[in-house]
Nucleic acid binder design. Structure first.
Lengths: 344, 344
DNA sequence: ATACCGTACTAACGCGCGTTAGTCAAGGTT
DNA sequence: AACCTTGACTAACGCGCGTTAGTACGGTAT
């Protein structure tokens, strides 16, 4: 079977009409008069032949690609526990499928060449782009937006004027740390979700931590801050480092990522210390496993799926309505208190 | 900026040559004589204009799309904890990037219309397809393979003759249960990773469980088998069900998915029972968090990343070499014994 | 009988590219 | 002097589609 791709010409011949008519019928073109009988003939012929328009030809002939891109930086070892990506995809895929779109993934190494998404745009492969965790030093991204290319960020890029769906990381982190403070903790460590690179979220969460301390009149201590790197192992290592220095020994830790927090929790328990009695723990993200670990993890719930869904809808508006106004959506977070911060 | 897409004609004019020459130079076409001086002029012109070939036009004129598809069924609530997908993507993205390919995601609802991937193929949008967890009742998939369309499965489709990268689920499960038996357990429950649908892995793992029991001369008890559904919550519920019936009370459980096992573990601990002293637990997958939970989870390590990588390479061979022989790769699994099955 | 109009269709172009089948001049052979 | 080569290019076609600018024709209005 399937030797020769069935083209609209084949359909036309079979229906005894011109290719133009086939196109008019199949695309339901407004303002064209086609007799009902002819229309049925064309429809029947198309069905019988199993006609599927050649995507590339459709695109070339000056239509939309009906494809959107999802770009995310790929830091080493990040992907295998990238819950956030999964949840975003979950929300996004729903929108994409609903509108008959296709999703093209672009995930460059987190190196210099981190702009392969540009090629997608330049080669006209996608109608719009959703960018996860944009780098603040990404100039090309701002250029794209200025050129009016449909672009939605999940995360933030300060200073630009780009549509985005984000949360207030700083306030959320502050709130989480204030919870620990209200439990009476004074020596509170911080383990970040990632190295202080060019991603803003990490920095914002760290700032929120400092905000809370400052408001409580507690001096910021550099030695209590450790830099995780996406993985549980990194959290394990950071926490082990903290535990090794007895002078530091915190009574609580704010970990800016649940996945990293799982590692930290493990490190504590390996030392036969208890969570939360010896060290209380608060995470960030509320990944689906947070309530099932032992003890259940107190954390900041992020509306990840919703971010994906909204980013998709927003992008669609940008693509269709050509509305050049950029819209920034800020979603709410919620502190979910569980057993890792308050003793049962 | 960027008003008019820069075409090869623009490059040709700027370099003072024909479009054909531009194409020859940029594509390094064998067997064409282009003077080095001309070549440099073309290269310079292309660079200066920022020329990027129009993807759709290339596809239409040439043959390759330089895009491959990744399809996976999307069961409700599965995606947010779909570690396996992430790891497969991790491996696959590496290959894809290395070869300058693009990845198109297709994830239909797990309903009847689960064959939207067919449209990708028919519309000539992809050169090849990788299918995660194929449904055994998917006739179209076999049809594709028979037509010689490059197709690689991750998971298995019995009876067909399709290239695949898989593990021996049955043997792995049996091995896991034998480990519990060797620890002296006789009443061993089983919680599956998913409902007994049309996915073979679930069934295989259940068969492995039965194999082990049978070999040990233990009668199979239907009441000890519960059906999870991808999520930790489902594991929690299944285990709660087991614990509620005192007559059943197992001393160990084989859970055919780490994620589900996390939920089961949580259910046990909520009852103030201990793992492994009261109930020993073995999972399946060795997700990156398995060693960081409390207690660390004994589990079957799956080479998920490697499956993704190999599937990519295999697909590439099918696309390039046109080798019509289908290859089935079976990778090894490994039982990783941790604290959830053997008391520290 | 002529002009006019709406209905039902179609010829032909262009999207941007890869590629085949050339052209043309310069030098080499018999 | 007539006939190949060979090197360096180019004209032109076709990929499959959407779409613009028509054509043909039966039926009214003048």
């Amino acid at each position: 079977m399937a030797r020769h791709h069935v083209t609209s010409r084949d359909v036309a011949e079979r229906a005894g009409v011109s290719r133009t008519t086939v196109s008019f019928v199949l695309n339901d073109v407004e303002g064209t008069k086609i007799s009902d009988e002819t229309r049925q003939r064309v429809l029947a012929a198309a069905k019988e032949l199993g006609y599927v328009p050649h995507a590339a030809a459709q695109v070339l002939a000056g239509q939309r690609t009906r494809t959107i891109g999802l770009a995310f930086p790929r830091a080493p070892h990040h992907l295998p526990t990238h819950f956030f990506l999964l949840q975003v995809m979950d929300g996004l895929l729903r929108v994409v499928q609903q509108h008959g779109l296709r999703l093209l993934i672009d995930s460059p190494d987190d190196g210099r060449s981190a702009r392969s998404y540009l090629n997608l745009v330049r080669a006209k492969r996608i109608d719009g782009l959703i960018m996860l965790d944009p780098r603040s030093d990404d100039r090309a991204l701002r250029g794209l937006a200025e050129d009016g290319f449909p672009l939605v960020l999940i995360g933030d890029l300060p200073g630009g004027d780009i549509s985005s769906v984000d949360v207030d990381n700083r306030a959320a982190a502050r709130n989480a740390v204030e919870h620990l403070l209200s439990c009476g903790h004074r020596r509170i460590a911080c383990i970040t979700n990632a190295p202080l690179s060019s991603y803003t979220a990490t920095e914002e969460r760290l700032l929120g931590y400092r905000d809370a301390l400052e408001a409580a009149g507690i001096a910021y201590d550099d030695a209590l801050v450790r830099y995780g790197a996406y993985t549980p192992q990194s959290g394990f290592n950071c926490m082990t480092g903290l535990l090794n220095d007895v002078r530091l020994l915190p009574t609580a830790a704010f970990v800016a990522s649940d996945v990293v927090a799982f590692g930290a929790m493990s490190a504590i328990q390996r030392r036969d210390l208890r969570v939360p009695e010896d060290i209380a723990l608060v995470g960030f993200d509320d990944v689906p496993l947070a309530r099932f670990v032992n003890p259940a993890l107190t954390t900041v719930r992020l509306p990840a799926t919703e971010q994906g869904r909204l980013a998709g809808k927003l992008l669609l508006e940008l693509i269709l309505n050509q509305l050049e106004v950029s819209r920034r959506i800020l979603l709410d977070t919620e502190l979910i208190v569980r057993a890792s911060s308050v003793p049962g």
